[in-house]
């Protein structure tokens, strides 16, 4: 049975309000229409992931503070960002499984009058869409089939690995986004190395390697003639959309592959206009894609 009135605390994280409100705008629109109630998370902080490489304990304490806020509200967390999902979900599971770790982190949390009890769950947008809303309801809300377009997907690392933390009911996430895309009527093409990393997390210390990784991904996507790449993570999106012109210049190659947030694609199928979905915020303008969608008749 699908949850008919799902309610979630929305955890925005930092990168979306800072650079990618187009993701937030489109996600809120489609979730509202699909009957998912979002409650704003009061005084949350960074999920902790960016601190993990320099101090695991502090990063875990920052994540746990967010989990405690959700426990106070007695609500589960919905994230839009893979990084936030990956880290909050991992810390949540580690705290539940490892008593020593829980004691250590709770000692830190006690200093700010909080205590982790292990009562909430963390889900990413694609989990809420598949597990709570369900494919049937999404299908019912598709008003304009996108059967005239062919796209490719990039799910992103922190939804896929480590599988110890990301497996849900024994199913891995490699096909989830593909299935969600196909609900819109669009064809989702396979390509080489779909599960490969975007490279963004190290761009602050080295540009060469991530740009080569992203270039290779864009080449693979171009090779199968996908008209767009669909993402569900702000970091992957920045790498492929915002940085695409830089990658084109650096390697003297031409991609011009529009990169849409999944809720933008779903939103188009649900009958929202490109303006309502902030599609004009994208760096690589999906002009040809929109032409195929609206001039298909």
């Amino acid at each position: 049975m699908k949850n008919s009135n799902p309610e979630y605390l929305i955890f925005l994280g930092c990168t979306i309000p800072y650079r990618l409100t187009s993701y937030e705008v489109s996600a809120r629109k489609v979730l509202k229409t699909l009957g998912v109630k979002l409650v704003e998370m009061p005084d949350f902080n960074c999920c902790g992931y960016p601190i993990d490489l320099v101090n695991h304990e502090l990063a875990s304490a920052l994540a746990t503070r967010n989990l405690c806020l959700a426990e106070e509200k007695e609500m589960n967390i919905l994230t839009l960002c893979n990084g936030c999902f990956g880290f909050l979900n991992k810390v949540n599971k580690m705290l539940k499984e490892d008593e020593g770790f829980r004691k250590k982190i709770n000692k830190d949390l006690n200093e700010i009058g909080m205590e982790y009890k292990g009562k909430v769950e963390v889900k990413h947008l694609i989990h809420v869409l598949t597990e709570d809303v369900g494919f049937e309801k999404i299908r019912q809300n598709v008003k304009k089939s996108l059967s005239m377009i062919r796209v490719a997907q990039h799910t992103g690392c922190h939804l896929l690995r480590p599988s110890k933390y990301t497996l849900r009911d024994g199913l891995d996430g490699h096909t989830l986004l593909k299935e969600l895309i196909e609900l819109t009527g669009a064809e989702c093409l396979d390509y080489v190395d779909e599960g490969e990393c975007c490279g963004n997390p190290i761009i602050g210390v080295n540009e060469d390697i991530p740009f080569q990784m992203a270039r290779e991904k864009l080449e693979h996507v171009k090779k199968v003639n996908a008209q767009a790449l669909i993402t569900v993570c702000p970091f992957c999106h920045i790498m492929y959309d915002l940085n695409q012109p830089l990658i084109e210049r650096r390697f003297n190659e031409r991609f011009r592959i529009p990169v849409l947030h999944y809720p933008q694609l779903l939103g188009l199928a649900m009958g929202f206009t490109p303006e309502e979905l902030a599609i004009n915020d994208l760096r690589v303008k999906p002009i040809e894609l929109l032409n195929s969608i609206y001039n298909a008749e």
Binding site: T21, L58, A61, L62, R65
Partner: peptide, 27 residues
Amino acid sequence: RRITQGLPHLPRSNLKQIAKLFEVTDF
């Protein structure tokens, strides 16, 4: 800009609590 985009107000975090977490983890 969030207002013109129809997005809710961005909450402010509890900086005192965050500073305390930095302190107790020796960071």
